[in-house]
């Protein structure tokens, strides 16, 4: 199956696992989309290779950024009408707290769904959702074929 077929399948079955499993980098991150109290969230399962600062220890900023970006992309796939893999135009990540060696969750909110571009806000947290560790805001192209 190519990615468009996988997207169509995942949208039909409302199961994103087959889609995340098909992306090698998602597997490397331990990334999955999961339902948490009825809400679709991205999850990055803790693994030692995600550590960026062994002294603290703290998660690598790049890994947290990748979780936020992946969550935004899969949130668009979940909500959008079009069946294309969104392309990141740009993303800004604010790092609020160091990421502890724990599972990390992220929730994406589509702030504006345009015809060509989607604006998404994402928040990441660990044990306490009221204490986010990072925020992101990004723009994603959703053009069929080459955007």
């Amino acid at each position: 199956m190519n990615i468009a077929e996988r997207i169509a399948e995942a949208r039909r079955t409302r199961d994103l696992a087959a889609l995340t499993d098909a992306v090698p980098y998602a597997a490397f991150l331990g990334f999955s989309m999961t339902l948490l109290e009825g809400e679709l969230v991205g999850k990055m399962r803790y693994a030692d290779h995600l550590i960026g600062n062994p002294a603290l220890p703290a998660l690598h900023g790049g890994a947290i950024g990748a979780l936020l970006e992946s969550t935004a992309i899969f949130q668009i796939l979940w909500d959008a009408e079009t069946i294309v893999l969104p392309k990141t135009v740009n993303i800004t990540v604010d790092y609020l707290r160091s990421g502890r060696p724990l599972d990390t969750f992220a929730r994406g909110i589509i702030t504006k769904h345009g015809r060509r571009v989607v604006n998404v806000r994402v928040e990441a947290w660990q044990e306490d959702r009221t204490r986010p560790i990072a925020l992101a805001n990004g723009h994603f192209l959703i053009l069929p074929g080459d955007g």
Binding site: I3, V23, P24, Y25, A27, A66, E69, S70, I91
Partner: peptide, 21 residues
Amino acid sequence: HLVGNPDTGVLHGGAVSSLMD
């Protein structure tokens, strides 16, 4: 293992952002 789009073999944006960070 850093590929974001298995159809094209293009690297995931997250890998590039880790590099730039």
